[in-house]
Simulated assay, not measured.
Amino acid sequence: MNFFFSGNSINRKFSNSLFVIALFPFLSTIFSACRSNNVKVDNELKQHFNKYGAVGCFGMFDNSRGKYTVYNIERFRERYSPASTFKIANALIAMQSGKVRDDSVIIQWDGVQRANEAWNRDMSLYQAFRVSAVPAFQQIAKLIGRDTMQFWLDSLKYGNMKIGPAVDSFWLDQSLQISADEQLGLVKKLYFKQLPFRASVQESVKKMMIQENNSAYQLAFKTGWGTTPSGKPLAWVVGWMEENRHTYPFVLNFEVDASKESEIPEIRKQLLKDILIDLGFYKGRM
Score class of each variant (00 low, 15 high):
F3R: 08
L176W: 11
A94N: 07
V105L: 10
K142P: 00
N116H: 10
K260S: 14
N38D: 15
S132E: 05
I93F: 13
L279N: 03
R77F: 08
A216E: 13
G185N: 13
M149W: 05
L23F: 15
S6Q: 11
A258G: 02
V20Q: 11
R79N: 06
T29E: 10
K222R: 15
F129E: 01
K207E: 15
D257Q: 14
R121Q: 13
A118Q: 04
L195Y: 12
L272I: 01
V251Y: 04
R35D: 04
I88R: 04
Y191S: 03
S215C: 02
E263G: 00
V41Q: 03
A128F: 11
V187A: 10
V205T: 07
Q150I: 01
L190V: 04
M123D: 00
F250I: 02
F61Q: 01
L172D: 02
G145T: 01
R101A: 13
P265G: 05
V187W: 09
W240G: 02
A166M: 06
F61I: 00
L156N: 03
G280S: 08
A136H: 15
A94W: 10
S215Y: 09
G239N: 02
V70W: 09
R12L: 12
D257W: 09
R114F: 07
K67A: 12
Q47E: 13
L219F: 15
I264R: 11
V134G: 01
S259R: 12
I178A: 11
P25K: 09
